[in-house]
Every structure is written in C-alpha cells, then in structure tokens.
Write a protein that binds this DNA or RNA. Structure first.
Length: 682
DNA sequence: CTTAGGG
DNA sequence: CCCTAAG
C-alpha cells in the first residue's frame, strides 16, 4: 500500500507494537479522563489566581477600551496591544506581590485586588525595576503565604507570569512560525508539533510509552514543548481572557477571596474550570450587578454559583450537549441600569470603584464616557424642593445576541445597536428604584416616595424596562441576576488575531489552560463562546422562573447575528436550537487527520480526546461527520469542493488513512489480529 | 455513553 | 449538523 510518507511510517508504527496496544487505548483513555479531571481539580485553585490576574488585566483592558475599539478595527493591532497591557499587568502583579510580601498579612484579601487594580488603572507610573527584582526574589516566599488565598494566588500568578512573560514573546514567535504552513511537506509535521504542544490531552494523559514508541520524531519535541507551554501559556491566554475575565470583584463575590460567607462554601468548589469559565463570562456583568443584587438581597448569587457546579458534575460531552444547545453569545444588560451611587459606593468599598464604573459605562450606552463617577447624580438643590437628577447612563434590558465569531467588531456593534433599537422600538418604560426597591406607585410624589432627601442620591436608581411583555408578576429581584454575561471584549480581539490556526484549543480546565499556547489562546476565542452559551443557557433554565428568561433566538444567518430582547417570552426553548455552524479550519482538519491516522476511524471519542479535547464545540460525532465529509471531499474534484480549501496533502492523507483503517477493520472482521497485519505491512 | 449511518 | 438505532 502506498501511504504518504509520514502516514506510512506512522501507520506502521501503529500497526506494529502499537496496534496491539491501541485496543487498550480506550481504557487508558478513560483513565486519562479521570486523570485530567483530577488535574483540573487540583488546578482549581490556580483558577482563582488566574481569575484575579485576569481581573487585573480586565481592568487594563477596560481602561483601554477605546484603544481596544481601534484595534479591533485594525485587526492586527489587537494582539499586540493586549500583550502590552498584559505586561503592564505583569508589572503590577509583581509590584503587588511585593506589597503583599511586605505586608505579610495576606488576610486583607480585599485590599489585594484593590491595590492591583489601582495600580493597573493608574498605570501611569513607571515600574521600578527594583521592586520587580525584589518581587522575583521573593517569589518563593510568596508562595508560602498560604494564609490568604488571594495573596497566595496572586503570588502564584505573578510567579507564573513574570518569568514567563519574557519567554512568552519568543515562544509566540515560535509558535507563529510553526503555525505558518510552510512547504506542504512539513506541514503535517508542523501541525503535529503544534498540536502536541497545544494539546493538553497529550500532556496529562498520553502515556509516555505510547508516545515514545511512536516512530515519528515529533515526540521528542513533545516533552519539551509541553513543559514550556505549561509554564507560561497563561500569559497569552490571560491576555486574551483578561478582557473577559472576572476581576477581583468577582473573586470576592465568588467567595474565592471573600472572607465572609455562605457563598463561600457554595462557590469554592467552583473555582474549577467550569466555574472560572462562567465567571469569565459573567465578568463585567457580574461585577456590575453583584452589588445591586446584594443590595436587593437576592439569591441570585447562589444561583450563579450553583450553575457551574451543577455543570461540573456532568462530563465533557454532557457539558457539550448542554452548551451546544445554545452557542450564543449573549449580551445582557442588567435592567437596573442606573445604579444608585450607593451601590457604587459599595463597590468602591471593595476597591473596585473604577473597575465597576468602567465596566458599567462600557456596558451602558456610554452616555458619559470619561466619568468614573456614578451614573447619575443629583445635584440636590435644597432650594425649592426640586430634585434635579442627572442620569448619566441607562442600561437596557437584557439582550441576547448571537453573532459569529468571524463577525467583525463593527458588525457586533451594529448587531448590538439593532438589538437595542429593537427593544426601544418595542417601547420602554422607566423603572425607578429606591433603596433597591422598585417604586411602582406612579402616583406617589417623590417626596412621598422618600425621594428627594439627601440620601436619595445614594438610593435612587433607574432602569429601562421593556414596555411590553413584562409581567408584573415578575419579581425584579432575581431574574437578571443570573444573566450577567457580558460580551467579552476579548472575543473580537481573539478573533481578529492570527486567524484560527490552532483551532482546537479552548480552555476548560486549568490544566488545559496551562497547556495553551498563545495561539491556542487565540483560538480560544471561538471556544469562549461555546463557553458563553452554556452559561447563558444554563441560566435561563435555572432562572426560568424569573421574568426574563432568555429566549434562545433562532440563530439567524451567521453573518447577520441574531438579536433578541431576552424579555419577550419567559421560556427558553434552547432545546431545539441548532448549533451554529462552525466550519473546520485547516488546522482542525490537520489535527483530525493526525488523530485518525493514529487512532483509526472507529474511535471518535478517543480522537476527540486526543485532538479536540479543548474544542468544546466539537463532539466526537462532529469529528466523525467531519471525517466523513473529508473522505468525500477528497474523492471529488477540487472544483466541486466548497468552503475553506483543504490542502490536497491533507486530503490525500485522509484517503490514505481511510483506506488503511477500513482495510484494517475488514481484516479485523475475519479475526485477523492486528499484529499479523503489522507484520505484513512491515 | 459511543458508534455508525442515514437525513 | 441532527437524529437514531444499537451495542
């Protein structure tokens, strides 16, 4: 038989000692699974740290919002910008580290984020190298600071970052280089390297023996790369995720850092991948709303918490299923758009005033850019009992937006705008919140309502509500709480960046994230949404009771991006949702081919695990289907093919592998042990 | 839950 | 991609 060079060698190797083992793979695979799981758990803590870091980064991004927009416009610019900020962040972290170390008392968890943020936000200052070095020196000691997890985590983060960030650059370049499909000859090889290096699965699960036995020369690199990737991927990844990642606020609320609470218990376990994901998603939104909710004494918190944990129980695939039902990116706005200063006050108390404000503004209509203060304020003119209110911004009711990752930022904006218009078109009404309570009685005078006193400023809030559907029965309290997602600004960035060369890696578990390379991070963008949706989706379910369950909108054409005021109906029939179409990128195909070459055509689950473990949106069924189409594609004339052209080389390999494995299967039927085959082939 | 196939 | 029968 004639196989492409690489294929043949690989196949043979497989057929040889390997094949015999192959059959066992499934078992090991299961074992792997558990392993992975374990790892993920153990890394849960890190997540907290990362989240924190993310938070900081988030601040940065927030601050650079405007520039961000610009960057998005000019695609290429983004990554760079992000990285820079990241570095800054890094600096901050280091600094921070110092402080913490010096303080020695990490208990003041609340202060940590504060410090970090402030510094970040006011990144104006130059970092003094001295502190930096000091920080490095103290790294070890830092880690020992176990008392306050926050501090500890932070230390960990810094630890991770600082050293790595340096290398990061190089690595990135490296990866980039390998990413660029050079001569077709080495293409697959490169890809394999890439995957090896990207694929966490391999890292934690792949049994060394198997690997080494593999005749290919890629393996050696394997270990090496893995290490590296494990050590720093954070950086890049973080950079991306940062925009989205939660911030300290979140941490606190989540209980990871927060000293108090019931939440703590519930949350803690969730400091796992899933949770973090959710958190990321919720990031800004969450941040914003959190105070509000607390204010209202709502249960949403727990809601949010549980969701993740709930999902955690499920396995990957299950999760996927859940997620898949709605790959939607949602953009929801807390209806209580205008938060009284009181809430902000609280926020600031936690040391995130700026962040909150920023976020707030970002999410709102940006009515008043540049002002970090409260969204509205009253210039109480004690004069003649007139109450002057200045509403700086309003938040619109929830919005559910679905937009392809490939969409441009511009289209995203447009989409959002449309969504907003849609809501506005339906008519809006203004809600007044006083002391966190909705003032329903329109006939009351402000005075009667207690509005107008000095305190008012701190307790008055406005909200925009859809004029239509809303039923009075809905209690404002909990509904939106759970839907605090925000589009991660990152997305666009990620998107724009280096294409989706390495498509298959999203991050799920901390461990996985660790293995991610900068590029992987890039790719994550796509995964992110898959991540997003889950949250959104789960939320609706959980909160179905609430008024504004999100109504999964039938995905309009990918380009258009569907927008729906999530308030329309209370039900969330995400069930019937058809997953959005996500064409396989060449990189993905490459990975698939590679995996199939090794594993064969009948073990899709393993293929999934091996090459797409991180691609949460690719199920083994998808892979199987893709293979099917690939085989078909390979057998038709290039002119008949559609979509992103797949390198002929890959198609050839597809056919070869297909032929090989089907033959293998055939021989297996008659009960011919693979070993025999191997011998023959050899 | 996975596979394997048809739709 | 979805849906399902089978295992």
């Amino acid at each position: 038989m004639v196989f492409p060079k690489r294929s043949s060698s690989e196949m043979e190797s497989c057929a040889g000692s390997q094949v015999a083992e192959m059959p066992h793979f499934p078992k090991s695979a299961r074992g792997k699974r558990s392993v992975r799981k374990k790892e993920a758990q153990s890394q849960g803590q890190m997540m907290c740290a990362f989240d924190l870091l993310a938070t900081v980064a988030g601040k940065l991004l927030d601050e650079g919002e405007s520039s961000l927009g610009n960057m998005s416009a000019g695609a290429a610019g983004c990554p760079k910008g992000v990285r820079v900020k990241q570095e800054q962040c890094d600096e901050e972290v280091k600094h921070f580290k110092n402080e913490v170390t010096d303080q020695d008392s990490c208990n003041e968890s609340a202060i940590l984020p504060h410090i970090a943020i402030q510094r970040v936000v006011s990144h104006a200052r130059n970092e003094d190298p001295k502190a930096k070095s000091e920080a490095q020196d103290k790294e070890s000691s830092m880690i020992s600071c176990t008392k306050a997890e926050l501090g500890c985590n932070f230390g960990a983060i810094a630890d991770r970052w600082s050293p790595e960030s340096v290398e990061s650059g190089a690595f990135t370049g490296d990866a980039a280089a390998s990413m660029m499909p050079p001569a077709t000859t080495g293409f697959h090889k490169i890809a394999s390297d890439m995957y090896n290096l990207l694929d966490p699965m391999d890292v934690d699960a792949k049994p060394p023996p198997l690997v080494s036995s593999d005749s290919t020369g890629e393996m050696p690199l394997y270990g090496d790369k893995i290490h590296r990737s494990i050590s720093f991927p954070r950086g890049p990844k973080g950079a991306m995720g940062f925009a989205v990642d939660r911030d300290d606020d979140d941490d606190k609320s989540s209980g990871c850092t927060h000293p108090s609470t019931a939440t703590n218990t519930g949350f803690r376990p969730n400091c796992t991948a899933e949770h973090s994901r959710v958190k990321k998603l919720l990031a800004c939104k969450y941040r914003k709303v959190a105070p509000a909710r607390m204010h209202r004494g709502d249960h949403s918190y727990s809601d949010v918490d549980r969701k993740p944990s709930f999902r955690n129980k499920k396995m990957h695939y299950t999760r996927q299923r859940t997620q898949r039902s709605t790959f939607k990116r949602r953009k929801m706005f807390d209806r209580h758009s205008v938060m009284a200063s009181e809430e902000f006050g609280r926020a600031s108390g936690k040391g995130n005033t700026k962040a909150t404000a920023r976020c707030f503004h970002a999410a709102s209509f940006e009515a008043n850019k540049g002002t970090n203060s409260m969204p509205f304020q009253k210039s109480c003119e004690s004069n003649d009992s007139h109450v002057k209110l200045r509403i700086k911004s309003f938040k619109v009711p929830e919005l559910l937006i679905e937009i392809p990752e490939t969409a441009t930022v511009g289209s995203l904006k447009k989409t959002v705008l449309e969504a907003v218009n849609a809501i506005l078109g339906g008519g809006l009404r203004v809600g007044v919140l006083h002391h966190g309570k909705k003032v329903r009685d329109d006939s009351k005078t402000l005075m009667q309502a207690g509005i107008g006193h000095d305190d008012m400023l701190d307790n008055l809030g406005f909200s925009l509500e859809p004029n239509c559907a809303q039923n009075p029965s809905q209690v404002p309290a909990h509904e939106d709480a759970s839907f605090l997602e925000t589009i991660d600004t990152t997305e666009p960035l990620a998107r724009i960046a280096p294409a989706d060369s390495s498509s298959k890696h999203g991050e799920v578990d901390a461990s996985q994230e660790l293995a991610l390379t900068p590029f992987a991070a890039t790719y994550q963008g796509s995964d992110h949404d898959s991540v997003h949706s889950p949250v959104g989706i789960s939320s609706p379910d959980k909160v179905s009771t609430s008024s504004r369950a999100i109504v999964p909108v039938p995905p309009a054409d990918s380009n258009a991006g569907a927008v729906v005021p999530a308030n329309k109906s209370k039900r969330s029939p995400e069930q019937g949702q058809r997953r959005i179409r996500r064409p396989f990128s060449v990189a993905e195909v490459e990975a698939l081919v590679l995996a199939v070459e090794k594993l064969g055509t009948g073990r899709w689950r393993d293929v999934k695990l091996r090459a797409f473990d991180n691609a949460k949106h690719r199920t083994y069924v998808d892979l199987k289907d893709k293979w099917k189409t690939l085989v078909h594609t390979a057998s038709i004339s290039p002119q008949q093919r559609r979509g992103e052209p797949v390198p002929q080389e890959l198609l050839d390999r597809v056919l070869a592998a297909q032929a090989y494995w089907s033959q293998q299967q055939a021989k297996l039927q008659p009960k011919t042990p693979p070993l025999a085959e191997a011998r023959l082939l050899t």
